[in-house]
């Protein structure tokens, strides 16, 4: 489903931040992405959610070589990917409901269905009373839950999350991981970038470990050197 073959990435004419990255993720797999700060986790995620093109190598997403796709085809591919950004990237002038509804609107869903589904999901993540609230009026944890709800609302084929539990307490963090596992059981491939070792130990999934621009694949429970 996802395949990276000798992929390198650089920003502009700077040095390569990722070098010879080669890995493959099976459909419906669950991986943690770990590594020290500056190792290239966010850059790898940017390649995965098609915000950046590799400077070399081959990236295959959903069995399609992304370098051969047209712009409209790339847009359709991006709609199958849900992203939880580290800084949430909510749109401040839109309500909580409209922020979460965005992927459905992009997919052309009907307004009555949008309202029903979004309200239900926001209630589930504990934001049922904040449907019309604007993001700046929400706490960090609440904003993070809105960002997660937006990423999962259209049941993406691939979910990418950058530190999704960084601003919530353990109880909410565990609940969110259970949500990701539930999505995973329904067939979504999950990659979660995190520093939270306790969470990685509690949820037994393999990890992709980045260090010095290189990637290692570790089985569940194994720790990097």
């Amino acid at each position: 489903m996802i395949r990276f073959d000798s992929v390198g990435m650089r920003y502009g004419s700077g040095p390569e931040v990722l070098r010879d990255i080669t890995f493959e993720l099976a459909p419906g797999s669950f991986h943690f992405l770990t590594g020290p700060s500056g190792a290239g986790k966010s850059s790898l995620l940017r390649l995965l959610y098609l915000a950046h093109r590799p400077s070399r190598g081959l990236v295959t997403l959903f069995d399609k070589d992304i370098s051969s796709l047209s712009r409209p085809e790339l847009s359709l591919l991006r709609r199958r990917i849900g992203v939880v950004f580290q800084d949430f990237r909510l749109i401040d002038h839109l309500s909580t409901l409209d922020n979460v509804a965005l992927p459905l609107r992009l997919a052309g869903a009907r307004e009555d269905q949008i309202r029903e589904h979004v309200s239900e999901l926001l209630r589930w993540v504990g934001l049922g009373d904040h449907l019309e609230a604007r993001p700046p009026t929400l706490s960090g944890g609440q904003q993070q839950r809105v960002a997660i709800a937006r990423a999962v609302i259209n049941r993406p084929s691939l979910l990418l999350a950058d530190e999704p539990t960084g601003n919530v307490d353990d109880r909410i963090g565990t609940r969110l991981l259970h949500l990701f596992e539930e999505l995973n059981r329904l067939g979504t491939t999950i990659v979660i970038a995190t520093h939270n070792e306790a969470l990685i130990e509690r949820f037994n999934h393999p990890r992709l470990h980045l260090q010095g621009g290189h990637l290692d694949r570790l089985p569940p429970g194994a720790k990097p050197y």
């Binding site: 098609l50 847009s75 591919l77 709609r79 990917i81 990237r89 965005l102």
Partner: peptide, 11 residues
């Protein structure tokens, strides 16, 4: 605009 683009909004 970048966010919409990443989320799959067409040009």
């Amino acid at each position: 605009v970048e966010l919409l683009h990443i989320m799959g909004a067409s040009d």
